[in-house]
């Protein structure tokens, strides 16, 4: 079952241990590794496709539903953030990977593709993930105690669920990009494991892995600093909130950096 290839803890029994069971049978061992690489690549592509479709569905449902009935209580511009940008880059990544796989087959240069996309992925996801953490989640929390918003979110979730049964709530759809960017390093390292070191893809896979790990750290660090800024702002009395918004983020960032040391 290919879907078991990504298992995080039980690799030893989910994936038969080809190294020991076929020790000495070099040809078969190589063959086995090749198959594993293909299967893992296919899985990475399949999940990317699912992910792109999830985001497309989310945007479609939001557009359709908000055109049909008015959503007064929900602020979609905050909730969706730059998800359109995320979708666009994810789609291009998916298409590039797919054509690479179809044209090059065994010789597919997955690492190179990721290296091409690395800085763009980092930029776009940095914005999305940090906004999700500092703006979207607090807003969703606020909506919990607002009856009109809860009702509207419920309607939206139903629509989502109808089109994509595994999308359970708006939040399970909104968190997808956050989960996706953190998965790339996992996919790349698994792919590298099943790629011969003599394969032309090997070296770039390694570079791409380093790059995407760096990107996760970057996203994380940026989110952390922005959280700090918001925490500082959040402590301020609400009547001052509007005024505080006008103060540049930069000066607050400096202050909060001082406070935290």
């Amino acid at each position: 079952d290919e879907s078991d290839f990504w298992d995080d803890g039980d690799d030893n029994f989910e994936e038969p241990d080809y190294e020991t069971s076929l020790a000495g049978v070099n040809g078969e061992q190589d063959q086995r590794k090749k198959q594993l690489r293909e299967a893992r690549l296919r899985e990475m592509l399949a999940t990317e496709e699912e992910y792109v479709r999830d985001l497309e569905t989310l945007l479609l449902v939001v557009n359709l539903t908000s055109a049909k009935t008015s959503f007064r209580a929900i602020d979609f511009s905050v909730l969706l953030g730059n998800i359109q940008e995320v979708l666009e880059v994810a789609k291009r990544l998916m298409e590039t990977l797919e054509s690479e796989q179809q044209n090059m087959e065994e010789q597919a240069q997955v690492g190179e593709v990721f290296l091409q996309f690395a800085s763009e992925l980092c930029q776009v996801y940095k914005t999305y993930c940090s906004t999700y953490s500092v703006e979207v989640l607090p807003l969703l929390k606020k909506y919990e105690s607002c009856e009109a918003a809860t009702e509207e979110l419920g309607r939206l979730a139903q629509e989502l669920h109808l089109k994509r049964p595994h999308l359970l709530t708006l939040n399970t759809a909104l968190i997808k990009p956050v989960q996706r960017i953190l998965k790339y390093p996992l996919y790349l390292s698994k792919l590298m494991e099943s790629t011969e070191s003599s394969h032309p893809d090997y070296c770039n896979l390694h570079k791409a892995l380093v790059c995407l790990e760096e990107a996760s750290r970057d996203v994380n660090e940026y989110t952390r600093s922005l959280n700090l800024v918001y925490k500082y702002r959040g402590d301020v009395d609400h009547s001052l909130h509007a005024k505080m918004r006008r103060v540049s983020l930069h000066s607050i960032a400096k202050k909060s950096a001082r406070m935290s040391t």
Partner: peptide
């Protein structure tokens, strides 16, 4: 799926 390694993002997942 990968969140165990990045502290600040984990908070989003925990909420």
């Amino acid at each position: 799926g990968g969140m165990e390694r990045v502290a600040s993002i984990t908070s989003s997942y925990y909420k």
